[in-house]
Design a protein around this nucleic acid. Structure first.
Length: 646
RNA sequence: GGCGGUGUAGCUCAGCUGGCUAGAGCGGCGGUCUCAUAAUCCGCAGGUCGGGCGUUCGAGUCGCCCCGCCGCCA
């Protein structure tokens, strides 16, 4: 049997898992299940990247050792996958001793082949990202995170990346699908064509890393260490033993394309090792069209969704709603709407009505007969799903499956089996048989096709259809119309996707979200409010605070200020005779549309000030952290315009 | 700034090498059946296809310019 080894990234453990991690991992595991249906021996990998400065510091911040800290977080990741019904076949923690051996071994091969040299770097360095910022001047911010860079002079080991410029271009050209989707490939190509500089792969500024097998106190740059985890996980004391390397697919987010499509193949080339076959970068999951980030405080976790909707609902939503490869928007509203219309009203209802009719009209025994039009459509659907999923076009494949579901619903209405059931004459009973079989067989095929996407629910429908063999034994080689045995007794019928009331569901998930994020914070030893509180503010008396007139305002108008990226021109109702004109530096965080009709907190007695020629009569109150964008203060309950904060 | 991408009904998007009255799903509105999860099914909703100029018998579909948004530029 052909193997298919695929990986998620090694998740960095400086923070707890969230829905973004879930997205990648669910997509990967769906591919694994799909590949198994195609007859491959699919091997699913996920793991954790545990070294580096950020982890060292995050651990220190809560008074734990890096090892204690990573033990905690990596366990959290593993627990997450288990809860979400994600089967992991291979995994690695980069702090595992056997990983250290593989990293050093691979480094040695690069060294022996002449691709490593000792050099020194003098210039700007971002400690947070462990990144050398070549073109920056002292005091410049880091292009990744915006933090101020530090000037360092350091002796490092360098990887001769420059030697691979041509070889990499050759790789991308000879294997056009090495990087997907196309836009990412274009980016990488233009990046590499511009010429590659050598890459520093060691650090002496931190301890929490794998030591280089050389003199001195060098530890590996976290990315050199991490990428090799894909290999360690299938090493087993020799790659021949598992036969799993090279990987067939690295599934990643678009932010780490360069590491996977440029550095990683270069490292492997230098070590004379086989290259992965493909790197696929998916897009970002936005929350209500905003980037999720800690500084915005809008990170969504999977656990509340799982508790309210089930893991399958989330997986279905992510794969159906978002075009794989592009950015996509997540919201609780969209999730429930999608669930109700597709899973409850579509699939769930079809299962329910079909199985109930077989119970009522045929005492639970599947009758004989078949409708050629539906049979043909189903055959086409099987083909389409295979083709689209092969290209990771999940949304298209799922759309095709729902076209079949819809056709069966129409077919049922056309045949009106409930009328046939009351008709003893003519062909009525035969037509009823044909209708019931057709619906049930279509349901069986739909269920089988959906099993990679609905790994918990599909088996339930499968069992209700009375199928004896496990759904996991179904392959595309055998899946065809007519596979449902006539005469088969169906199982006990029960609803698989109960409808979820929109408002209640959203409220429930939001409530749980707060609970879960508090739990995560507790796990990390953080006190809820302790997040980077401004240090050393002098104490003030209550009178001092009383001088500040804070009022609730309603944004009536909002537009960008011409010639400025940061400013918004707002008209805000403070309950006064005239709305106020306020210019706020929040345009990088909020669009005018988002501001409209929003209740905000305004400093109402600030001296007027002219910004870009517009007089601003007040200031909008927002919180921000170093390097992050401002987040507006707001209220959970309703409050009239003009109310004073005191 | 350079390179790449993108802007189509309220929302999410299809529309390949240019050609019948511009489509789908969801939402909305009206109706229907009753097997079913207040589900299904049927009908309706009239969007300057970002803007302009051009090529063409004919342009969301090609070219140029402009505007907006996104990504990459170590």
């Amino acid at each position: 049997m052909n193997k298919y080894y695929l990986t998620t990234p090694l998740y960095y453990v400086n923070a707890a898992p969230h829905i973004g991690h879930t997205y990648t991992t669910m997509a990967a595991e769906t591919i694994a299940r799909f590949k198994r249906m195609q007859g491959y021996d699919a091997v699913m990998f996920t793991g954790t990247d545990e070294h580096g400065q950020k982890v060292e510091r995050a651990a220190e911040a809560i008074g734990k050792s890096p090892q204690e800290f990573t033990d905690l977080i990596s366990a959290e990741f593993r627990a997450q996958w288990e809860k979400l019904n994600i089967r992991v076949d291979r995994t690695i923690r980069t702090t595992d001793p056997r990983h250290r051996k593989v990293v050093q071994w691979l480094f040695q091969r690069c060294l022996d082949n002449g691709y490593i040299y000792k050099g020194s770097y003098s210039g700007q360095y971002c400690v947070y990202d462990e990144l050398y910022v070549n073109e920056a001047k002292p005091g410049d911010p880091c292009p990744e995170c915006g933090r101020t860079t530090e000037t360092v002079t350091e002796e490092n080991y360098f990887f001769k990346l420059s030697a691979f410029t041509e070889k990499l271009i050759e790789l991308y050209e000879s294997q056009p699908d090495f990087i997907q989707p196309e836009t990412r490939r274009n980016e990488v190509l233009s990046f590499v064509r511009a010429g590659l500089n050598d890459l520093s792969i060691s650090r002496t500024t931190l301890k929490w890393g794998i030591p280089l097998p050389v003199e001195g106190k060098h530890v590996f740059y976290v990315w050199f260490d991490a990428l090799i985890g894909y290999m360690t996980a299938v090493e087993d004391g020799g790659f021949e033993r598992t036969g799993l390397w090279p990987a067939d697919l690295h599934l990643i987010g678009k932010e780490i394309v360069r590491f996977h499509a440029v550095f990683w193949p270069a490292f492997l080339m230098a070590a004379c090792l086989p290259l992965p076959r493909r790197v696929f970068a998916h897009g970002w999951l936005l929350f209500e069209n905003d980037k999720m980030s800690k500084s915005r405080g809008n990170i969504v976790r999977s656990e509340p969704i799982r508790q309210v909707m089930g893991a399958d609902a989330l997986r279905y939503f992510l794969l159906r709603e978002i075009v794989f490869g592009q950015d996509g928007s997540f919201s609780f509203d969209a999730l429930i709407t999608r669930y109700n219309s597709d899973l409850a009203n579509g699939l769930g209802n079809l299962a329910s009505r079909t199985l109930t009719m077989i119970t009522q009209y045929r005492k639970g025994a599947i009758p004989e007969g078949s409708d050629p039009a539906i049979a043909e459509l189903a055959a086409g659907t099987i083909k389409t799903v295979q083709e689209t999923f092969d290209r990771f076009e999940f949304s298209k494949g799922l759309e095709a499956i729902w076209a079949l579901i819809s056709a069966v619903d129409k077919f049922i209405v056309t045949m009106a089996p409930w009328k046939l059931a009351r008709d003893a004459g003519g062909d009525a009973q035969q037509n009823l048989n044909r209708t019931l079989y057709t619906a049930a067989e279509a349901l069986r095929i739909v269920t089988a096709l959906l099993s990679p996407v609905l790994p918990l629910s599909a088996p339930k429908i499968w069992t209700q259809l009375g199928m004896k063999d496990s759904i996991e034994s179904v392959t595309f080689a055998t899946l065809a119309w007519g596979g449902l045995p006539a005469g088969q007794q169906i199982g006990e019928v029960s609803g698989v996707f109960p409808r979820i009331e929109l408002k209640e569901g959203v409220a429930k998930m939001r409530e749980l979200e707060e609970k879960v994020s508090a739990e995560q914070a507790a796990l990390l030893g953080k006190k809820p409010e302790a997040a980077e509180a401004a240090p050393g503010s002098p104490k003030i008396a209550i009178d001092d605070f009383g001088k500040v007139d804070l009022r609730v305002g309603l944004v009536l108008q909002a537009e960008r200020v011409k010639g400025s990226d940061k400013l918004l021109h707002l008209k805000v109702d403070l309950g006064e005779a005239q709305p106020r004109t306020i210019v706020a530096g929040i345009a990088e965080a909020y669009t005018p549309e988002q501001m409209l009709h929003r209740k905000v907190v305004i400093v109402a007695n600030l001296q007027p000030r002219k910004l870009k020629g517009i007089e601003s009569n007040g200031m909008i109150v927002a919180a921000s952290v170093e390097g992050g964008k401002p987040v507006l203060a707001g209220f959970h309950e309703d409050i009239p315009v003009g109310a004073r904060l005191k």
